[in-house]
Design a protein around this nucleic acid. Structure first.
Lengths: 164, 164
DNA sequence: ATATCTGCAAAGACTTTGCATGAGA
DNA sequence: TCTCATGCAAAGTCTTTGCAGATAT
């Protein structure tokens, strides 16, 4: 018996089949969870959403689905240095597109930004070309991230001197 | 009884005291281990070196020493996405200085590069200034890393199709 | 029909914590 | 001397694995 697929065009089905994988309910549910938010969800975050909607879906399955979605390029995994992976759609429906992260080292807040990409493109082209030539690497990806302190945390800093 | 401090000018002593911490043997030993290599060591790597030289030093102490050294800015912690932290000196004696990492997604090899920093500087200045203005963040750090496939792994790819 | 996927529980990898002993200033 | 650091063992967190039963095609 088919359990019924959540709303939304099952383009995931085609992608999965293209790679020889099966289109399943939990995989679609995980994709939905990531589509419904702009947040950078941890595996457990995704599990809480998915399991809240469909209690039969377990944490292991969420991990496996995320792995698979990363492998086929539908989802991107990030590391903000807090010891847990963060996931987001590679191509977010809300026109999120190409973006980078600005992480507050104090409160952990993450801002997505899409500005100054021309300058970045220039930099990337130069560097990637150079890296390829000098080190004979085929560059497939880059990771650009800025860290800093958001306004709120800067204001609070006065209270907690040298705080963690 | 003092256990004796490994060779090298104990400038670490001054830095630690400056922050109100004590200058201890294991802390110096961890610093030495990081000084003696250009590699990006995991906590366990550091432990193996340190414990090999001074068997009385335990893993917990290495973790705590690394944490402390990161906190006072002597050591930098990186994340190459393999689930374990990597450590290196902030200012490496072998004139390592400012550099970035080029990671092979296939074999995990890491190349440090220091090229094309002018272009990068240009990009960083523009972006950091923009981020500060638009999002009111005080930018304290950035993370730039390239991923790709090294020559060796590209040659091997022909054998293992779609391999992990 | 059958190879793949799921879910539970258990194991695994890396890191942190508790506490008594030992070392630094 | 007295506080901070160490080392062992145990616990904690996030993630992966094993296996029987369920599911997609």
């Amino acid at each position: 018996m088919t359990r019924g697929i959540p709303p939304g065009p099952p383009w995931l089905s085609k992608v999965l089949h293209g790679y020889g994988y099966r289109y399943t309910f939990p995989r679609e549910a995980v994709l939905q969870a990531l589509s419904d938010t702009r947040e950078h969800l941890s595996a457990e975050d995704v599990y809480l959403i998915v399991h809240g909607r469909y209690p039969q879906i377990g944490l292991t399955t969420v991990y496996r689905a995320l792995d698979l979605l990363v492998k086929i390029g539908v989802v991107v995994k990030f590391d903000f240095g807090d010891g847990r992976g963060r996931f987001e759609l590679a191509f977010h429906p809300s026109a999120k597109g190409h973006h980078h992260h600005l992480v507050c080292t104090c409160c952990g807040r993450v801002v997505d930004y899409t500005d100054w990409l021309e300058k970045e493109k220039e930099f990337l082209q130069t560097t990637e070309k150079g890296l390829k030539q000098k080190y004979d690497f085929e560059i497939t990806d880059h990771l650009i991230q800025f860290c800093g302190k958001c306004a709120e945390c800067r204001n609070m800093t006065n209270k907690v001197k040298g705080g963690e």
